Simulated assay, not measured.
Amino acid sequence: MSQISSSSMSRKRPLLVHHRSRPSNVEPGLVVPLQRYNAEEPEATAFVESVSKLDQGSIEIKLDAVDYTTQDLEETTIQLFEDHALAEEVFGSVPQEIGYTDQGLDVTLAEGAPLPRRSSESLLGVPTTVRVATEEPPTSDGWQTSGADQSPWTGGSAINSGTGLCTSGFTWDKWTTREKMGSTAEHCYQLASPQPATQTWKTPPGTTVGNRYFFNIAADTQLIRAASGTSFRPRVWVGYNDPRTVKEYKSSVPATQVVALYGRTSGYHSTTVLGHFPRTMLDGSTTVLARTNSNVCQPGDSGGPWFYARGDGNIVAVGQHVGEWSRCEFVQIGTISASLSASVYLG
């Protein structure tokens, strides 16, 4: 068995403080976890002391001794992500997706793959959740789905032009006109051969969504003017028939931020931000993209929304999918906004 290298296993065992509160509408005896807190941080003592003074009838504190840190999770995730032979030895097959949350490693195996016979947690030394990817539900007549969207149009939908297949992105509010416009990746036009004078986007069933109007190659984004009698709404698909409202956006996201993509080909998947890396765009300019720890995005996902969910299930926009299938990457919201003089339209 190859060994997972982690220099931090010999460190002092940290304590994670679970701070839980019970809202007024929750029955007594039930708790809702809010956060974890590393007791090795300088604020740990003050945090525990302040919470301990609160009414114990509404606040519960639980201290769990663990022998891993967030750095251990990150190092293990990256090692398994890069070393396919080791990942196959641990999980029985190369994962379709691997990342980490505050609950430990989060691993998704390809559809049809068997779950590992041995405990991954015992092999890796950190909490590990392993699941098998499932097929998206088939479409049904009368449903509005990401594969057969209807006006008002929703981001994350499959859109077709005569020269390519892509995914729609967030709805944008143009500063000068306040027009609400859809979006997708500009390389969906730049790489078309031949390039049409006007790029018209349609749903797979053939309904016209709109036309490419404004664009910026460096930000790899085009804004789509809605077809007559139609409009774009501030929502995105997070499942084949599960649209959510976009309530916030972040101009940029830090490394380790949990994010998710919804694309027409790969569907929904979540991962974490690896970091930020410069890339030469089709016009020769350099744009810094956010690179993730995922490699499951596929052709056709281009232009799709990157986001994460708030506690209420609504969406925070963080970027638009570019591609680079060895490392799924996206243009951050701040880059698009500055390049096209528009803001994400919020609901």
Rank of each mutant, 00 (worst) to 15 (best):
G206N: 10
G206M: 07
M1G: 12
G267M: 08
L15I: 15
L86C: 04
C166G: 00
S168N: 02
A44F: 06
Q222I: 15
G125P: 09
N160I: 11
F47A: 08
K247D: 06
S337H: 01
P299G: 14
T203I: 09
G284Q: 04
C328K: 06
E43H: 05
A44S: 11
D102K: 12
G263L: 07
K250W: 12
W201D: 04
G57H: 11
A39H: 08
R13A: 12
Q56K: 12
L191Q: 13
A110F: 04
S228Y: 12
T207M: 09
S58H: 13
S2V: 09
V90R: 04
K247C: 08
S8R: 15
R117T: 15
R235C: 08
G323C: 07
G267F: 06
G162K: 04
D312I: 06
Y100H: 12
G162P: 00
D173C: 05
N314C: 09
V259M: 06
R117V: 15
L15K: 13
Y189V: 11
L282I: 14
L123F: 01
G284K: 03
N160K: 04
Y240T: 12
L86P: 01
S231E: 15
S337L: 00
M1S: 14
K12G: 09
V32W: 10
F330V: 04
V246S: 01
S8N: 13
P152A: 14
S337N: 01
V236E: 11
L289S: 00
D301H: 01
L165D: 13
R225Q: 15
S157L: 06
Y345S: 03
N295P: 02
G142T: 07
V90M: 07
D141R: 03
E88F: 02
G206R: 07
E49V: 06
A219Y: 00
Q35N: 10
F91G: 00
Y308Q: 07
E27G: 06
S50V: 05
R327L: 02
T101L: 11
Y37I: 13
A226W: 03
L34M: 07
P196H: 08
W306Y: 10
A44T: 08
V238W: 03
Q35R: 13
T176N: 14
T292I: 09
F81Q: 13
E121R: 11
A192S: 15
L124S: 04
D173T: 05
V331C: 01
S2G: 03
L261G: 02
T154E: 05
P127D: 08
I159F: 00
Y189M: 02
S122C: 03
T76K: 07
S270D: 13
Y37T: 15
G29T: 12
V322P: 01
P204S: 06
G92Y: 10
A260D: 10
D106L: 07
S58G: 13
Q257R: 15
G239N: 13
T221H: 02
P116V: 04
T163E: 12
G323M: 11
E40L: 11
D83I: 08
T335Y: 00
L54Y: 10
P204W: 05
P28A: 14
P234D: 10
Q103G: 07
I217S: 03
